[in-house]
């Protein structure tokens, strides 16, 4: 990704942000949506387009869980592990998915590179607890561990959308 491409995206929305620093986030989101994660090159492009230092842009990106500084799987599955979901069995869901995907107990990317599993703080869907979120868009629940495994298998088979916000 080049700075020009980032600029093309943020120039039309620049006026919506009173503090120009706030533009760093939509710029990062744009880069990640297209390229899947924020490579060094992407961070540099965002820094150049927004006029902030590379270190500052990386510091913003590293603050947020949903901005990835390393490559992730085609789809990202986030299991809510905050109180309501935990009481409704998220620990078991996490354990079942981790075993099924052959990743560590706190998540990781499956060996086939299709799915990244991660723990998430409250997704704001306590009424659906225990819930999981597919990419950053679709929150599903309540689920049992078996239903969660079935959902992930379905995702594995499904076609991956070209551009997605995870």
């Amino acid at each position: 990704m080049t700075a020009a491409e980032v600029r093309e995206h943020i120039d039309p929305i620049r006026h919506e942000y009173a503090d120009p620093r706030s533009l760093v986030l939509p710029a990062l989101k744009f880069a990640q949506t297209r390229d899947g994660y924020l490579s060094e090159e992407n961070l540099e492009a965002v820094a150049e387009a927004t006029g902030y230092s590379r270190a500052y842009v990386e510091s913003v990106a590293s603050f947020y869980d949903r901005l990835y500084l390393t490559p992730v799987g085609d789809r990202v599955v986030s299991v809510c592990v905050t109180l309501s979901c935990m009481l409704r069995g998220s620990d078991e869901i996490m354990a079942a998915l981790a075993e099924h995907l052959d990743v560590g107990p706190h998540g990781g990317t499956s060996p086939d590179g299709r799915i990244t599993l991660q723990e998430s703080q409250c997704l704001g869907a306590c009424d659906k607890g225990a819930c999981i979120q597919v990419d950053a868009e679709n929150t599903v629940g309540p689920l049992t561990p078996a239903e969660a495994v079935a959902l992930v298998d379905e995702l594995r088979e499904a076609e991956t959308p070209a551009e997605r916000w995870r």
Binding site: Y52, S53, E58, F63
Partner: peptide, 25 residues
């Protein structure tokens, strides 16, 4: 780094208990 030398190199990365002083990559 940011406001006196203005080299823009040092920042905090990550957050909460994981916060650390770092440079770009």
């Amino acid at each position: 780094s940011q406001d006196v030398a203005e080299d823009g190199q040092l920042t905090f990365q990550e957050r909460g208990a994981g916060t650390e002083v770092a440079t770009f990559t």
